[in-house]
C-alpha cells in the first residue's frame, strides 16, 4: 500500500514545498497538499507534516492562530488516533499551541533570529522518527527561527526526560532552550516537534544529509506497523 502523507499549508507557511519534496524523495508515495481552511484531511493518511514559516505573520504568538485553524481539529484527531505527525519550526510552535506537545517556544534568549547549521545530539533512538539514528549520535541540521527557546516547568521537563521524550538536544548554544531541548515527542511517540529543519538536509547538494534518516524512519516504521 502506498505511503500516504499530507503537508498542511497555513497562510504564511514557507517551507511547505521543501517539506513535500523531502517526503516525496525519501518516503515516496502520495503527498497531499492541504490548505489550513479545510475541515477534513484526506482519508487513510500515514503521516502529516506541519511545515516551517510564519503562519499568520506570527500574530498573537508564533503558531497561536494556526493552532486554532479548522484543519488543526482534524490533525489533533488524527494524532490521537496514532497517525504520525511531524512539526518543524513553525510547525513545532503550532503543535505546542494546539496542546499536542507540552511547553512553549519563546523568543530566543539572545533576541536575535538564528539562521545557521547547528550541531544536535540524538537523545532518543526508539521513536519512529529517530530509529534510524544512533543514541548520542552527533548530527548537523539547519535552524532558522526567532522563537525557538523551549520552555516548560521543571516537572514537565523532568517527565519528558524521564520518559525518553526528548528527541534531540542542541550540542551548542543556540536559543536558550531549557535543557538544550531541540525536539520533543508526545506520550505516544507518534508526534514530534523540532525547531531544526530536517527537510533542508536530505541530499548532498543541501550541504548535508543528516535530516534524511528522520524521513526514512517515518516510512520504515509505517511499513512495519
Amino acid at each position: 500500500m502506498a505511503f500516504r502523507s499530507a503537508v498542511i499549508t497555513f497562510p504564511g507557511s514557507n517551507c511547505d514545498r521543501d517539506m513535500a519534496v523531502a517526503i516525496e524523495q525519501v518516503c515516496g508515495g502520495e503527498v497531499h497538499r492541504v490548505w489550513h481552511g479545510e475541515a477534513a484531511l484526506p482519508e487513510g493518511l500515514d503521516f502529516i507534516a506541519l511545515p516551517g514559516g510564519f503562519s499568520y505573520g506570527d500574530y498573537l504568538r508564533s503558531g497561536a492562530m494556526a493552532a486554532r485553524s479548522p484543519i488543526m481539529r482534524a490533525v489533533v484527531d488524527a494524532a490521537n488516533r496514532g497517525v504520525k505527525v511531524l512539526g518543524v519550526c513553525n510547525g513545532f510552535q503550532v503543535l505546542t499551541e494546539s496542546g499536542l506537545l507540552p511547553g512553549v517556544l519563546m523568543r530566543n534568549a539572545g533576541i536575535r533570529f538564528v539562521c545557521r547549521e547547528v550541531g544536535l545530539t540524538v537523545a532518543n533512538n526508539t521513536s519512529v522518527f529517530t530509529q534510524r539514528y544512533f543514541m548520542g549520535q552527533k548530527i548537523t541540521i539547519p535552524v532558522a527561527h526567532h522563537d525557538g527557546n523551549y520552555f516548560a516547568d521543571a516537572d514537565t521537563l523532568d517527565r519528558l526526560e524521564g520518559e525518553g521524550r526528548v528527541a534531540f538536544r542542541y550540542a551548542e548554544a543556540v536559543n536558550g532552550s531549557a535543557r538544550d531541548i531541540a525536539g520533543v515527542l508526545n506520550e505516544g511517540g507518534n508526534v514530534l516537534g523540532m525547531m531544526p529543519h530536517p527537510e533542508r538536509f536530505i541530499e548532498a547538494a543541501h550541504g548535508g544529509i543528516d535530516g534524511r534518516a528522520l524521513f526514512e524512519g517515518v516510512v520504515r516504521g509505517l511499513v512495519e506497523a
Binding site: 498573537l60 504568538r61 497561536a64 486554532r68 499551541e97 507540552p102 511547553g103 512553549v104 520552555f151 516547568d153
Partner: peptide
C-alpha cells in the same frame, strides 16, 4: 484558551 498561553 487564546489570548494568554497559560504555560508562561
Amino acid at each position: 484558551k487564546l489570548l494568554a498561553n497559560m504555560v508562561i
